[in-house]
Design a protein around this nucleic acid. Structure first.
Length: 926
RNA sequence: GCGAGGGUAGCCAAGCCAGGUCAAAGGCGCUAGGUUGAGGGCCUAGUCUCGUAGGAGUUCUUGGGUUCGAAUCCCAUCCCUCGCACCA
């Protein structure tokens, strides 16, 4: 009947927990924690499991410590990904179907409905709730909501009104990756290729050719002074086009691109590349230069024409050299304009010759270009005649000058090619208008956030720097979208609020989520929320009674104590939510702390649904049991470290729970009279309680398990070893079991509830009082005695192993009192270098001569070797070694199977006896 | 490339911030012995090298440095993880 059966424990506990974790304001002190809510577009895997179990363990811990704990959950449904997913399912994309049908095990009937994106998130949201419940996560589900609920949208509108009023919402233009076939911006998940491509700002340097401009796109406008020629590809076709009414010559691709970047482009006629060769063009900053032929010029990069600076660009240098080797254009000389440490007068020439590159098609060309580019940017200086400024300064100045005075324009381009949309089309850069931004670049706003960050608790400490850097680095955030699910943007209802921007203060919404549902959404004006969250009275507030209740609830819970999330959200969500909080809430309602998690691995490889490298949480629970999954996830690494799920290790975790279970049932009813060894066990228990409590207070779940599980288990092993044969232990074991079960309950609550009942504990263990260490039960004397005994046993064992004789007897010979004096003097000494001299000043010691100095040296070594938690109490309390060993004589004889004699070293003839030291008796095996 | 974090015995992982107490906790795996109805479970011991007395030697990515003394501090090096923005 008492068979270990996690499934049964789970069933029984679930029944009792039904509404147990619904939490309301009370007289208790509150503890409010939240986790980043999930975007339920797929099934939960064990990585998600940890994300929600860590806070649960913390929640359960504080609940047992008598706090009013709130742990709510909701679902983030805003955004575009599910739209793409439903489209792909509608199109019967085999990969997507495989993922959802085979990996996530969605029944065909449900899958058919996934052509509606909302169905996907609804389905998985309820799956999440079901699996989280199965894991024993103690959530108050009454507060569940999704981010597309009309009520929530009202809340978001209120939030944005405040952001807007504070001047943080601004309108602007923004270059984005754009697919002209889909007619939409493309996110990373929409890309087939080039998901690392960045949009870079090029300057178009406008060369004049008659009445026409020939623009060249460059990242290095400052090198204009060194231009010796342009490059055109003779093998391609260019176009002459009117760009904003002015004639330009550019590649066809460039014409299309410019049309997306705020230019009106009318193509007039085509021009063969070869017809441009040898034409003379000019620019005010470099004069007249010819157009030369080059095959490396790509029509799909920039304007399709390139300005050539052979002194500083390896490509240009080699291309020119090749032509000159063929005897052409031999009058052109590279014109240097930048001096840079480590290179000669003409850096490009220098670098090319050093590496021995012979062809412009050499693959090293790119690295070489990068090398020169970096060197000149970081250390280069323009020649005096060009102003003498560092490159990094001159570059921006010259670019600005060109735009102002020399007709230059900005052109956006990707840094890598190609960039391809899922639809197969090439992605281009488009400038979006009416794009709204959150002005995270605002230094005043940044300062508010970083000031508050200084007051926050951050776990682990190492992330503080990362937060600081993030605040520093954040630029304006495009906060509206054209596609996806979400709340309409109030100042342009054709757009939606971007998903990361509608999820920054919802922790406040949880406090009222279950009550606000009772109010008709249309009544939820900004004034209503102003009242609930800011206490601002206004006339005609609807449902005043309900609002008052909500106001009270908000005041009770807020601010939240801790926000939990994986570390990948530091650079956006976790920092954003601080920005929003400082704007909307008063100082006393600002977040108190954050806990940042590491990532999850599966068998050493990164977990990834798209690669199929996942282990579903539900499968883990049914295969190993919820408690096993929990204990494994909490014990294999601290929350902020990466963890690795390996089935073999999980199996052994299950065995550990079973061992714990069996042990408790075995010993809980022991009836013996308590003895010294019981006092030892209980004394040790006090420090395990202290250390487990401290660890959990610091969110160290692994450390806590080490103490609460292995610490106590190890003690029990020694305890049982020390018991006489005919004894099963004392009734103190019941006390130990009671504390032990409670210490482990946050980790393995299902087994915990079952055992708690077996121990006749009151109510649910989930709400049982957390054990508190009692100073009065700590017995240093007995702990020291056991320590001495255990160390001696270890010594005897290691000697027996070495000497390979069959022992007939063991003699333990104890150090004399004068050695204790020396030991004590050294242990207490502040300066261990001079203490020996001090000791030898004593007449009695001096009489012993070398014997005493030797003993002092040995004591010093010994004291260094003993752990401080042993040495420290030894200076307070002298262990009566004779009494300890006499009492343990029976035990030792049982252990080693030979007669054991205890003697005073001073009265022994054996030469070994002289080696006896305090806390390390001489051992003579014969 | 930039920003942050990290590399410890077969594996996971503590220690590092506050240098000596470190051959380095704990867990897993493995080996041996015990218990047991082979097995499993449980208990005990071992698990860098050497050692017929509880000890010694060489280790903490690699290479330097500081120090009487470094896994711990400094510099460099190689490798790994996360983030780098319109994406949840």
């Amino acid at each position: 009947m008492n068979e270990f059966d996690l499934g049964r424990f789970e069933e029984e506990a679930q029944e009792q927990w039904m509404h147990a974790f619904e939490s309301n304001p009370s007289n208790l002190e509150k503890f409010y924690l939240t986790v980043a809510y999930p975007y339920p577009s797929g099934a939960m895997h064990v990585g998600h499991g940890r994300t929600y179990i860590v806070p649960d363990v913390i929640a359960r811990f504080w609940r047992m410590r008598g706090k009013q704990v709130l742990y709510p959950m909701a679902f983030h449904v805003t955004g575009a990904p599910v739209i793409g997913i439903s489209k792909r399912i509608a199109k019967k994309d085999p990969k997507t179907i495989h993922l959802y049908r085979d990996l996530y095990k969605v029944p065909q009937k449900v899958l058919d409905e996934f052509v509606d994106p909302l169905t996907i998130v609804r389905h998985f949201a309820s799956e999440y709730q079901r699996v989280m419940t199965a894991c024993g996560i103690s959530i108050d589900w009454r507060r569940r909501f999704t981010t597309v609920d009309p009520t929530y949208s009202k809340f978001i509108e209120w939030q944005w009104k405040h952001l807007y009023d504070a001047g943080h919402v601004i309108k602007g233009v923004h270059p984005v990756r754009y697919c002209t076939v889909d007619d939409n911006p493309v996110g990373d998940h929409d890309l087939l290729e080039g998901d690392k491509a960045e949009v870079i700002k090029f300057t178009l340097v406008m060369f004049r050719y008659g009445d026409t401009f020939i623009p060249t796109a460059t990242l290095r406008p400052e090198t204009i002074h060194g231009v010796t020629n342009l490059w055109a590809n003779p093998g391609i076709t260019y176009v002459r086009a009117l760009v904003d009414g002015t004639p330009w010559i550019i590649s066809k691709d460039a014409a299309e691109k410019l049309a997306l970047q705020d230019h009106i482009v009318e193509i007039q006629n085509e021009i063969a590349g070869r017809d441009l060769i040898d034409k003379i063009v000019s620019h005010p900053l470099c004069g007249k230069v010819p157009v030369l032929p080059a095959d490396f010029v790509d029509p799909d990069v920039g304007s399709g024409l390139v300005m050539s600076v052979p002194a500083h660009a390896p490509f240009d240098y080699v291309a020119l050299r090749d032509l000159q080797h063929a005897g052409r254009y031999t009058n052109i000389r590279p014109v240097p304009l930048i001096k840079v440490e480590g290179y000669g007068k003409i850096p490009a020439q220098d670098a090319v010759e050093r590496t021995g590159i012979t062809s412009q098609m050499d693959s090293c060309m790119d690295t070489l270009t990068q090398e020169i580019y970096s060197a000149e940017f970081s250390k280069g200086r323009l020649f005096e005649k060009y102003g003498g400024k560092p490159v990094r300064v001159a570059r921006d100045e010259i670019a600005a000058l060109m735009v102002e005075q020399y007709n230059s324009k900005i052109m956006y381009e990707f840094d890598t090619h190609p960039v391809v949309c899922r639809c197969g089309n090439k992605v281009k850069v488009k400038i979006l208008h009416d794009q709204w931004f959150l002005k995270y670049s605002d230094p005043a706003w940044k300062k508010q956030v970083s000031d508050h960050l200084g007051d926050m608790a951050l776990i682990p400490q190492e992330v503080r720097l990362e937060f600081e850097r993030t605040i520093d680095w954040l630029k304006d955030w495009a906060c509206t979208r054209r596609v996806g699910l979400g709340t309409r943007f109030p100042w342009d209802t054709t757009q939606l609020i971007e998903p990361l921007s509608d999820s920054t203060i919802y922790m406040a919404y949880y406090t009222i989520a279950h009550r606000i549902k009772e109010i008709e959404p249309s009544l939820l004006t900004p004034e209503v929320f102003d009242y609930i969250f800011l206490g601002k009275e206004s006339v005609d507030l609807p449902e005043k009674k309900k609002l008052e209740t909500m106001r009270k609830e908000f005041l009770f819970w807020y601010p939240y104590n801790y926000r939990f999330s994986a570390k990948d959200l530091i650079s956006n969500h976790l920092t954003f939510q601080l920005f929003h909080h400082v704007t909307i809430f008063p100082k006393d309602k600002l977040p108190l702390g954050m806990v940042v998690f590491g990532m999850g691995l599966l068998n050493g490889a990164k977990m990834s649904s798209s690669k199929g490298n996942v282990f579903l949480l539900e499968d883990a629970v049914s295969e190993f049991g919820a408690d096993t999954v929990r204990m494994f996830l909490m014990g294999s690494a601290e929350p902020w470290q990466d963890f690795d799920w390996r089935n073999e290790l999980v199996i052994s975790t299950k065995k550990q729970i079973e061992r714990f279970y069996n042990t408790v049932l075995e010993i809980k009813d022991a009836k013996g009279e308590p003895d010294d060894i019981d006092r030892w066990l209980i004394s040790r228990l006090q420090s395990h309680i202290d250390r487990t409590t401290a660890a959990l207070t610091n969110f160290q779940t692994r450390q806590a398990l080490q103490e609460a599980y292995f610490g106590i288990e190890t003690d029990l092993k020694w305890y049982r070893r020390r018991l006489p044969d005919d004894c099963d232990g004392s009734r103190e074991l019941h006390t130990l079991c009671s504390a032990w079960v409670r210490l482990l309950a946050p980790f393995i609550p299902f087994t915990g509830e079952y055992l708690w009942k077996q121990l006749a504990g009151e109510g649910l263990v989930s709400f049982a009082p957390w054990p508190v260490a009692e100073r009065g039960l700590v017995n240093t004397r007995i702990e020291l005695a056991e320590e001495l005994l255990a160390r001696t046993v270890e010594d005897i064992e290691s000697i027996e192993k070495l000497i390979q004789i069959i022992p007939k007897s063991i003699t333990i010979s104890l150090a004399p009192a004068w050695k204790h004096e020396i030991f004590l003097a050294i242990a207490k000494a502040d300066d261990r270098n001079t203490v020996i001299r001090e000791i030898m000043k004593n007449d009695a010691m001096r009489k012993r001569g070398k014997e005493a100095t030797d003993a002092a040296k040995q004591c010093t070594t010994l004291i260094h070797r003993l752990p401080p938690h042993v040495v420290e109490p030894l200076t307070q309390e002298r262990v009566n070694e004779m009494a300890v060993f006499k009492a343990a004589k029976g035990f030792l004889e049982k252990e080693f199977g030979v007669p054991v004699h205890i003697t005073e070293a001073e009265s022994s003839e054996h030469p070994k006896a002289a080696t006896a030291l305090p806390f390390k008796p001489a051992i003579i095996i014969e």
